[in-house]
């Protein structure tokens, strides 16, 4: 099993108030921001690791996990952290965020898929900065591969995956054949969400993403990390999406106290118009 995981680095969502927009609204000022891996992509990496191991022997990788990101040189620390978690090697496609849109990333990934020939491409359902939710779907279309989005559970089969998706009123189960594109939702890192064919169904993972012990952090520095230019992967690097203007959401107004339920209902109905 060979899995390609696409990772994006985003401004630390816990410090979203540090995001500044200049008065002319032309861009987002990234100076001074702390960056973190997109949480959903971290979940995708955890999923890839679970699919390539026996849960009781997490140090032994059965298959190969490759992480890829599109970003400037300082995103290599994000890739090193992913390697410390257990990925085997990393690829950085050199580009700045403002040179990228969802379709361009999908096209770049398509070329990488042709080179690497993974069985599965995994990524988060969306990145928590732009929330565009496009790359997985666009990639599946470009590759003409089966796709499962918003995966909450994955069970490995001999020739494909059974993917559980939480939908209104229940769980939708999809059976998809390799090769495939899968994007994951937050519940994918629950203790019983992902099972490879090697992991016994009675095994329970720790909730969340695994920790990297110091030896793994040290080993990660010696794992291969290749760099490619965007132009190597995509002929036309022009953007299909152009951002015209950014503005901060309006500051939240102070709330009001209501005397009783009747006044609350009245306000919800006549002021907020939500009833």
């Amino acid at each position: 099993m060979k899995i390609l995981v696409a990772l994006k680095r985003v401004a630390d969502p816990d410090n979203a108030n540090k995001v500044k927009i200049p008065a002319d609204g032309s861009t987002i000022d990234t100076a001074g921001l702390e960056f973190k891996p997109n949480p959903f992509d971290e979940y995708a990496l955890e999923t890839a690791l679970r699919l390539t191991e026996d849960g009781t022997k997490p140090k032994v990788r059965d298959g190969e996990v490759i992480v890829v990101t599109f970003g400037p040189a300082d995103t290599e620390s994000t890739l090193r952290a992913a390697l410390a978690t257990g990925a085997d090697r990393a690829i950085r496609v050199d580009a700045n965020d403002d040179q990228l849109d969802g379709l361009l990333v999908a096209k770049g990934l398509k070329t990488l898929v042709a080179e690497e020939k993974p069985d599965i491409v995994l990524m988060g359902k969306q990145a928590v900065d732009g929330d565009t939710n496009q790359v997985g779907q666009a990639l599946a279309e470009l590759l003409d591969w089966p796709m499962a989005t918003f995966a909450a559970t994955i069970e490995e089969q001999e020739d494909g995956l059974v993917v559980g998706r939480e939908v209104d009123g229940g769980v939708l189960e999809l059976s998809i054949k390799y090769p495939a594109v899968v994007t994951v939702d937050l519940r994918i890192v629950s203790p019983s969400s992902v099972y490879s064919t090697k992991t016994d169904r009675s095994f329970k993972y720790n909730e969340g993403v695994r920790f990297s012990p110091l030896p793994a952090i040290m080993q990660a520095r010696r794992k291969p990390l290749d760099t490619k230019s965007l132009a190597d992967l995509v002929d036309d690097t022009g953007l299909k999406i152009n951002y015209l203007r950014f503005e901060a959401p309006p500051a939240r107004l102070a709330g009001v106290k209501v005397a009783d339920a009747a006044e609350l209902v009245d306000k919800l109905k006549n002021e907020a118009k939500v009833l």
């Binding site: 620390s77 090193r80 952290a81 410390a84 990297s212 110091l214 952090i217 040290m218 520095r221």
Partner: peptide, 8 residues
């Protein structure tokens, strides 16, 4: 660098 990752 490894200290920074360990701190994380």
């Amino acid at each position: 660098e490894e200290h920074a990752e360990l701190r994380e």
